[in-house]
Computed example of a mutant assay.
Amino acid sequence: MVIKTSDFLKALIDHNGAGGSYQIHLNSDCLDEKSAKNTDIEIGDLYFTECSAIKDHTLLCFGNLGKKPIDKSEDGTDLYPIEINSNMFIDINKIESVEDVEKFQDWFYLPSKRVINVYMYPENDSVGGCRNVVTIGFME
Score class of each variant (00 low, 15 high):
Tyr22Arg: 02
Met1Glu: 01
Met1Gly: 08
Ser6Trp: 00
Thr39Gly: 12
Ile136Asp: 13
Glu102Val: 11
Leu110Arg: 13
Phe8Trp: 06
Glu50Gly: 14
Gly128Lys: 13
Ile116Pro: 04
Pro122Phe: 08
Cys51Asp: 01
Asn64Pro: 08
Ser86Met: 13
His25Arg: 10
Asp32Cys: 11
Ile3Cys: 03
Asp106Leu: 03
Glu42Met: 13
Ile54Trp: 00
Pro111Gly: 08
Gln105Trp: 06
Ile43Asp: 12
Glu50Met: 05
Val101Asn: 12
Asp91Gly: 00
Thr77Pro: 01
Met139His: 07
Glu123Pro: 00
Phe48Lys: 06
Ile24Asp: 04
Trp107Arg: 11
Ile136Cys: 11
Leu65Pro: 06
Asp71His: 04
Asp106Cys: 07
Gly20Cys: 00
Gly128Ser: 03
Arg114Ser: 09
Ser97Cys: 04
Asn16Trp: 08
Asp71Val: 03
Ala11Gln: 12
Ile84Gly: 04
Ser97Trp: 01
Lys4Ser: 07
Phe104Cys: 07
Glu33Asn: 14
Lys103Leu: 07
Cys51Trp: 02
Ile43Asn: 13
Phe104Arg: 00
Lys34Phe: 07
Tyr80Ala: 07
Glu123Ala: 13
Ile90Gly: 13
Lys55Met: 11
Leu65Gln: 15
His25Tyr: 05
Leu110Tyr: 12
Phe48Pro: 02
Leu59Phe: 07
Pro81Glu: 12
Ser35Tyr: 09
Ile95Phe: 11
Val2Glu: 15
Ser86Trp: 13
Ile82Ala: 14
Lys103Gly: 02
Tyr109Met: 12
Lys37Ala: 13
Gln105Asp: 15
Glu99Arg: 10
His57Asn: 15
Val98Asn: 03
Ile3Trp: 04
Gly20Gln: 00
Leu31Ile: 02
Gln105Tyr: 07
Lys34Thr: 15
Lys55Trp: 05
Lys113Thr: 10
Asn16His: 05
Ile90Glu: 11
Leu9Asp: 10
Trp107Leu: 13
Cys30Thr: 04
Arg114Asn: 08
Ile70Thr: 12
Thr58Val: 05
Gly76Glu: 07
Asp125Cys: 04
Glu102His: 09
Tyr121Pro: 03
Phe108Asp: 01
Glu96His: 09
Lys37Asn: 11
Leu26Phe: 12
Gly128His: 09
Leu46Asp: 00
Ile116Glu: 04
Ile24Leu: 14
Lys67Asn: 06
Leu46Ser: 01
Asp106Ile: 03
Asn16Ser: 03
His57Asp: 15
Asn124Pro: 02
Met1Pro: 05
Phe104Leu: 03
Tyr109Lys: 11
Asn93Arg: 15
Ser21Cys: 14
Glu42His: 03
Leu60Gln: 05
Phe8Pro: 02
Glu83Ala: 13
Glu33Val: 05
Phe108Tyr: 06
Cys30Ile: 01
Ala18Ser: 13
Leu12Glu: 04
Phe62Cys: 11
Ser6His: 06
Glu140Phe: 06
Ile24Met: 11
Gln23Cys: 14
Gly66Arg: 14
Asn87Met: 09
Met139Ser: 01
Asn132Thr: 15
Phe62Thr: 10
Gly63Tyr: 08
Val2Phe: 09
Ile84Lys: 15
